[in-house]
Design a protein around this nucleic acid. Sequence first.
DNA 1: GGTCGCCTGGTA
DNA 2: TACCAGGCGACC
Length: 257
Amino acid sequence: MPELPEVERARRLVEKAAVGHRIARIRALHRAHARRLSKSRATSARGRVIERVERYGKHQLLRLSGGWMAHVHFRMSGDWEIGSTATAPSPHARLLMDLADGTRLSLVDPRALSTFTLHPPGVDPLPRLGPDPLSADFDTNWLAGALRGRRVSIKVALLDQRVAAGVGNIYAAEALWVARIDPRAITGTLRRTRLARLAEAIRQLLRAASSARGHGTRDEFVVYGREGEPCLRCRARIRRIVQAGRSTYFCPRCQRR
DNA sequence: GGTCGCCTGGTA
DNA sequence: TACCAGGCGACC
């Protein structure tokens, strides 16, 4: 269930297990991953040291010696599992990165929608991303500027990674509930005071989720996944609608346009 | 703007 | 058996 807090947790895990270590071998176990990782690409990573593990929104960048980079995205169901080359890979392991010291990083992903790509020096594999909501760059000014003049519903805009890198479907719904904003509200029409509340809600939710040891079970969410249940603020029934093909949960009474 | 495809698994 | 899933890029 990787939203930004889970990706950050995974990043730390890999950082601890892998930084300073040499890659012995990278192997794709699933054809979707094999398609993106040619044999020669995989070979070119052999012997390289993992120097840094960075996160940009939900993207992970492993900086390797010689200027190479591995770009990882968990999509819907990916995660890192740290184990040993001596044991059999888990059933849902899609890609294995074996280190020289016998540590094995497994990209486990039941749905196999995650991506792992290797890039030679000089290539920037990241798409254009807005500021990380956990960083100081993300504030009301930024949000107001990023949304100015746009005619999209606020929920859809929040999922645009150029607006805020790392906000996913769950936290978009949660933040809009906290800020009492109807997810169907048109971005350009929202007043600055409401955007300030929204920016603060996003920051606070992601910060809290990142420091919590839990990893986001359903009942930690106030609106997400609660169709038909009473709103925790006003007791009206939570509604589920579809926006841009994704579920949106909100309270039709206390979240206003 | 919306819809589809990528993939598999869990649940009604 | 059908529908649903937290992402995202390609397409109309």
